[in-house]
Design a protein around this nucleic acid. Structure first.
Length: 203
DNA sequence: CCCCCGATGGTCT
DNA sequence: GACCATCGGGGGC
Protein backbone atom coordinates (compact mmCIF):
# COMPACT_ATOMS: atom_id res chain seq x y z
CA UNK A 1 0.00 0.00 0.00
CA UNK A 2 1.00 3.59 -0.60
CA UNK A 3 2.90 5.32 2.21
CA UNK A 4 1.56 8.68 3.40
CA UNK A 5 3.83 11.48 2.18
CA UNK A 6 5.15 14.52 4.02
CA UNK A 7 2.42 16.80 2.69
CA UNK A 8 -0.18 14.61 4.37
CA UNK A 9 1.27 15.60 7.73
CA UNK A 10 1.81 19.25 6.78
CA UNK A 11 -1.67 20.37 7.89
CA UNK A 12 -3.44 21.22 11.13
CA UNK A 13 -3.58 18.37 13.63
CA UNK A 14 -7.39 18.32 13.73
CA UNK A 15 -7.43 17.53 10.00
CA UNK A 16 -4.62 14.99 10.16
CA UNK A 17 -6.10 13.31 13.25
CA UNK A 18 -9.39 12.69 11.50
CA UNK A 19 -7.77 11.51 8.27
CA UNK A 20 -5.40 9.12 10.05
CA UNK A 21 -8.38 6.97 11.04
CA UNK A 22 -8.39 3.76 9.00
CA UNK A 23 -4.73 4.17 8.00
CA UNK A 24 -2.14 1.50 8.83
CA UNK A 25 0.84 2.07 11.15
CA UNK A 26 3.74 -0.16 10.15
CA UNK A 27 6.87 -0.87 12.17
CA UNK A 28 9.50 -3.08 10.56
CA UNK A 29 11.44 -4.92 13.27
CA UNK A 30 14.13 -7.47 12.37
CA UNK A 31 12.73 -7.70 8.84
CA UNK A 32 9.21 -8.43 10.10
CA UNK A 33 6.24 -6.15 9.49
CA UNK A 34 4.11 -5.38 12.51
CA UNK A 35 1.04 -3.40 11.47
CA UNK A 36 -2.18 -2.05 12.95
CA UNK A 37 -5.12 0.01 11.71
CA UNK A 38 -5.51 3.36 13.48
CA UNK A 39 -8.93 3.56 15.14
CA UNK A 40 -8.53 6.44 17.61
CA UNK A 41 -6.55 9.71 17.55
CA UNK A 42 -6.29 13.04 19.33
CA UNK A 43 -5.15 16.39 17.94
CA UNK A 44 -2.75 18.53 19.97
CA UNK A 45 -2.86 21.96 18.44
CA UNK A 46 0.30 23.56 19.80
CA UNK A 47 0.95 26.95 21.37
CA UNK A 48 -2.70 27.87 22.00
CA UNK A 49 -3.72 24.40 23.28
CA UNK A 50 -3.38 24.10 27.06
CA UNK A 51 -3.29 20.31 26.80
CA UNK A 52 -0.32 20.29 24.41
CA UNK A 53 3.27 19.79 25.55
CA UNK A 54 4.16 22.78 23.36
CA UNK A 55 1.54 25.06 24.94
CA UNK A 56 2.66 28.68 25.18
CA UNK A 57 5.65 27.95 22.98
CA UNK A 58 7.28 25.70 25.56
CA UNK A 59 10.46 24.42 23.93
CA UNK A 60 12.46 21.86 25.93
CA UNK A 61 14.66 18.99 24.74
CA UNK A 62 11.72 16.59 25.02
CA UNK A 63 9.39 18.55 22.73
CA UNK A 64 12.02 19.93 20.35
CA UNK A 65 11.02 17.49 17.58
CA UNK A 66 7.56 19.11 17.43
CA UNK A 67 9.23 22.30 16.21
CA UNK A 68 10.83 20.50 13.28
CA UNK A 69 9.13 19.65 10.01
CA UNK A 70 6.04 17.45 9.57
CA UNK A 71 6.05 13.67 9.28
CA UNK A 72 8.39 12.72 12.12
CA UNK A 73 7.71 10.66 15.24
CA UNK A 74 7.31 12.20 18.68
CA UNK A 75 7.29 9.45 21.31
CA UNK A 76 7.15 10.46 24.97
CA UNK A 77 7.53 8.41 28.14
CA UNK A 78 4.76 8.85 30.70
CA UNK A 79 3.89 7.64 34.23
CA UNK A 80 7.26 5.96 34.56
CA UNK A 81 6.18 3.04 32.41
CA UNK A 82 4.43 3.85 29.18
CA UNK A 83 5.22 5.35 25.80
CA UNK A 84 2.85 7.40 23.61
CA UNK A 85 3.30 7.67 19.84
CA UNK A 86 2.55 10.90 17.99
CA UNK A 87 3.01 12.12 14.43
CA UNK A 88 4.36 15.67 14.16
CA UNK A 89 2.21 17.91 11.97
CA UNK A 90 2.50 21.37 10.39
CA UNK A 91 5.59 23.08 9.04
CA UNK A 92 8.82 23.82 10.90
CA UNK A 93 8.26 26.22 13.79
CA UNK A 94 4.59 25.26 14.36
CA UNK A 95 4.65 22.60 17.13
CA UNK A 96 1.57 20.44 16.60
CA UNK A 97 1.13 16.65 16.84
CA UNK A 98 -1.44 13.87 16.63
CA UNK A 99 -1.51 11.23 19.38
CA UNK A 100 -2.35 7.72 18.16
CA UNK A 101 -4.54 6.36 20.97
CA UNK A 102 -5.67 2.98 19.68
CA UNK A 103 -5.33 0.58 16.76
CA UNK A 104 -6.56 -2.74 15.48
CA UNK A 105 -3.95 -5.49 14.91
CA UNK A 106 -3.48 -6.31 11.20
CA UNK A 107 -0.09 -8.02 10.68
CA UNK A 108 2.45 -9.63 13.01
CA UNK A 109 -0.19 -10.77 15.50
CA UNK A 110 2.15 -13.25 17.22
CA UNK A 111 4.83 -10.58 17.64
CA UNK A 112 2.29 -8.22 19.25
CA UNK A 113 0.96 -10.97 21.50
CA UNK A 114 4.48 -11.83 22.65
CA UNK A 115 5.33 -8.18 23.28
CA UNK A 116 2.24 -7.71 25.43
CA UNK A 117 1.57 -11.10 27.04
CA UNK A 118 4.60 -13.30 26.29
CA UNK A 119 2.57 -15.86 24.37
CA UNK A 120 1.26 -16.64 20.88
CA UNK A 121 -1.81 -14.86 19.55
CA UNK A 122 -3.79 -18.13 19.52
CA UNK A 123 -3.19 -18.47 23.26
CA UNK A 124 -4.83 -15.16 24.18
CA UNK A 125 -8.21 -15.03 25.85
CA UNK A 126 -10.85 -12.63 24.56
CA UNK A 127 -9.97 -9.85 26.93
CA UNK A 128 -6.24 -10.05 26.17
CA UNK A 129 -7.03 -10.00 22.45
CA UNK A 130 -8.83 -6.70 22.85
CA UNK A 131 -6.17 -5.33 25.22
CA UNK A 132 -3.38 -5.84 22.68
CA UNK A 133 -3.62 -2.33 21.24
CA UNK A 134 -6.64 -0.50 22.72
CA UNK A 135 -4.71 2.33 24.33
CA UNK A 136 -1.71 4.59 23.58
CA UNK A 137 0.70 2.78 25.90
CA UNK A 138 -0.55 -0.66 24.90
CA UNK A 139 -0.16 -0.09 21.18
CA UNK A 140 3.37 1.22 21.68
CA UNK A 141 4.26 -1.92 23.62
CA UNK A 142 2.65 -4.17 20.99
CA UNK A 143 4.47 -2.42 18.12
CA UNK A 144 7.81 -2.03 19.97
CA UNK A 145 7.70 1.76 19.81
CA UNK A 146 9.55 3.60 22.57
CA UNK A 147 10.93 7.08 23.05
CA UNK A 148 14.09 6.10 21.19
CA UNK A 149 11.92 6.38 18.06
CA UNK A 150 11.49 10.11 18.57
CA UNK A 151 12.72 11.86 15.43
CA UNK A 152 12.16 8.79 13.22
CA UNK A 153 11.15 9.86 9.70
CA UNK A 154 7.63 8.62 8.98
CA UNK A 155 8.43 8.95 5.28
CA UNK A 156 11.29 6.45 5.75
CA UNK A 157 11.34 2.63 5.71
CA UNK A 158 11.16 1.59 9.36
CA UNK A 159 8.20 3.31 11.01
CA UNK A 160 5.54 4.77 8.73
CA UNK A 161 1.82 4.96 7.94
CA UNK A 162 0.15 3.47 4.85
CA UNK A 163 -3.17 4.06 3.16
CA UNK A 164 -5.88 1.71 4.50
CA UNK A 165 -8.21 -0.64 2.66
CA UNK A 166 -11.26 1.54 3.15
CA UNK A 167 -12.48 4.83 4.53
CA UNK A 168 -15.98 3.41 4.83
CA UNK A 169 -16.77 3.89 8.53
CA UNK A 170 -18.51 6.31 10.85
CA UNK A 171 -16.39 8.81 12.79
CA UNK A 172 -17.20 9.90 16.34
CA UNK A 173 -15.79 13.17 17.70
CA UNK A 174 -15.36 13.71 21.46
CA UNK A 175 -13.38 15.36 24.25
CA UNK A 176 -9.80 14.23 24.71
CA UNK A 177 -8.86 11.73 27.43
CA UNK A 178 -6.70 12.31 30.52
CA UNK A 179 -6.21 16.09 30.34
CA UNK A 180 -8.22 17.32 33.34
CA UNK A 181 -5.55 19.96 34.03
CA UNK A 182 -6.12 21.69 30.68
CA UNK A 183 -8.92 24.11 31.75
CA UNK A 184 -11.01 25.26 28.76
CA UNK A 185 -9.00 23.08 26.37
CA UNK A 186 -10.38 19.92 27.96
CA UNK A 187 -13.78 20.74 26.42
CA UNK A 188 -12.50 20.85 22.83
CA UNK A 189 -13.74 18.00 20.61
CA UNK A 190 -10.34 17.04 19.28
CA UNK A 191 -10.54 13.28 19.74
CA UNK A 192 -11.69 11.10 16.84
CA UNK A 193 -12.50 7.41 16.68
CA UNK A 194 -14.06 4.83 14.39
CA UNK A 195 -17.64 4.10 15.33
CA UNK A 196 -18.34 0.61 16.70
CA UNK A 197 -14.71 -0.50 16.63
CA UNK A 198 -13.86 -2.81 19.54
CA UNK A 199 -10.29 -1.50 19.88
CA UNK A 200 -11.31 2.06 20.81
CA UNK A 201 -9.91 2.73 24.30
CA UNK A 202 -12.84 4.58 25.91
CA UNK A 203 -16.39 4.85 24.60
C1' DC B 1 -19.94 -3.70 34.75
C1' DC B 2 -17.84 0.33 37.77
C1' DC B 3 -14.66 2.97 40.82
C1' DC B 4 -10.30 3.37 43.06
C1' DC B 5 -5.53 3.21 43.61
C1' DG B 6 -0.55 2.02 43.28
C1' DA B 7 3.27 1.40 40.13
C1' DT B 8 7.33 3.86 38.42
C1' DG B 9 10.75 7.21 36.41
C1' DG B 10 11.71 11.05 33.03
C1' DT B 11 11.06 15.86 32.86
C1' DC B 12 10.82 20.38 34.42
C1' DT B 13 10.63 23.76 38.29
C1' DG C 1 9.75 17.58 44.71
C1' DA C 2 5.57 17.67 41.83
C1' DC C 3 3.55 16.38 37.84
C1' DC C 4 2.03 13.14 34.32
C1' DA C 5 -1.77 12.78 26.68
C1' DT C 6 -1.55 5.26 31.36
C1' DC C 7 -2.31 0.60 32.77
C1' DG C 8 -3.82 -3.37 35.40
C1' DG C 9 -5.61 -5.36 39.38
C1' DG C 10 -8.77 -5.49 43.33
C1' DG C 11 -13.11 -4.96 45.40
C1' DG C 12 -18.06 -3.78 45.14
C1' DC C 13 -22.30 -4.50 42.68
Amino acid sequence: MKKLDREFYNRDSVVVAKELLGKIIVHEVDGQRVAAKIVETEAYMGVLDKAAHSYGGRRTPRVEVMYGGPGFAYVFFIYGMHNCFNTVTREEGVPQAVLIRAAEPVEGLDIMARNRFKKEYAGLNRSQEKALTNGPGKLCAALSIDRGKTGADLCGDVLYVEEGETQDFGIVQSKRVGIDYAEEAKEYLWRFYIENNRYVSVI
